[in-house]
Design a protein around this nucleic acid. Structure first.
Length: 255
DNA sequence: ACTTCCGACGACGTGGACTG
DNA sequence: CAGTCCACGTCGTCGGAAGT
């Protein structure tokens, strides 16, 4: 089994007119412009690395914020291969043993999938198991509930030697790898990627419903093969309502 | 600049208990 | 039976902090 630690750099829509959102492509708000990945074996030894720039298609102008952050230029990017070609290389990079994706936060996985789908490419080769190392590092470094730690802060706190500037895809993937090595223990377990799952999908409002008392009594009469008395009927109705409150449920936990 | 995620918090709905 | 109170769960919004 291998771990694939990867990091992406994105570009986004830019218009000189402040507040102009017409340039933003809703299907691809963040276009991947750089991919960096490190393949690790089970002992977290580096097997190989991959770094590629990607020729932009959705946003031909580099957002000044992104240019400043990454140090990349549109000239560099235009000389690179398009996403489809780099994606093929990434799939090739993934081949071999079963892989688990490792990222810093969920944004990279999410945007990777979004870009793949935008180009109508197949996600079949992308592993469905992932480890969000930012989440584990935040817990490991005792961050306040709900507050994630930044990669730079984690690197500093874990006393990882500073070699390269941040916000280069491969450099960030390497720093993420170093963090992984520092915090790796049995508690760091992969999760299944469910990107289709909406945050509130499982918490939608319940449909309003009423109890079919007639049907309820009928069912009991069928089960006991006799008519229920009036007392029994009221006990059944009451028990049904009480059952729905889970008042007497005892939780049994697996040992 | 923009998106996303998470926790906190308030509003609201529901159902049981209680009271008159 | 109707009204009120309370506990609990759900949902939407907000702010902070992360990502590029």
């Amino acid at each position: 089994m291998n771990y694939i630690v990867f990091d992406l750099e994105f570009n986004q829509g830019y218009s000189p007119v402040k507040g102009d959102k017409s340039v933003i492509n809703k299907n691809c708000p963040f276009e991947i412009i750089q991919l960096g990945a490190v393949k690790l074996n089970e002992n977290l030894d580096t097997i190989s690395t991959l770094e590629r720039l990607i020729k932009p298609k959705v946003y031909p102008i580099l957002h000044p914020f992104v240019a400043d952050l990454t140090g990349l230029t549109i000239k560099d990017l235009n000389a690179a291969e398009p996403f489809q070609k780099v994606y093929e290389e990434f799939i090739e990079f993934l081949k071999g043993d079963k892989s688990i994706l490792c990222t810093w936060g969920m944004a990279d996985i999410k945007e990777l999938f979004r870009n793949i789908l935008y180009y109508k490419l197949d996600t079949f080769h992308i592993p469905n198991e992932y480890i969000d190392l930012q989440s584990y590092a935040s817990k490991h470094l005792n961050r306040r509930k709900g507050f994630s730690i930044g990669l730079g802060a984690a690197v500093a706190l874990l006393e990882i030697p500073f070699k390269e500037e941040f916000h280069d895809a491969l450099a960030d993937a390497c720093y993420t790898t170093e963090v992984f090595r520092k915090i790796h223990n049995k508690k760091v377990e992969p999760k299944i990627c469910l990107l289709h799952k909406n945050r509130r999908e499982n918490t939608h409002r319940k449909e309003k419903c009423t109890i079919d008392n007639h049907g309820l009594i009928k069912q009991f009469e069928k089960m006991f093969n006799r008519e229920m008395t009036e007392d029994e009927k009221s006990i059944i109705k009451l028990a049904y309502i009480m059952g729905r409150t889970n008042q007497f449920q005892i939780k049994n936990y697996d040992k």
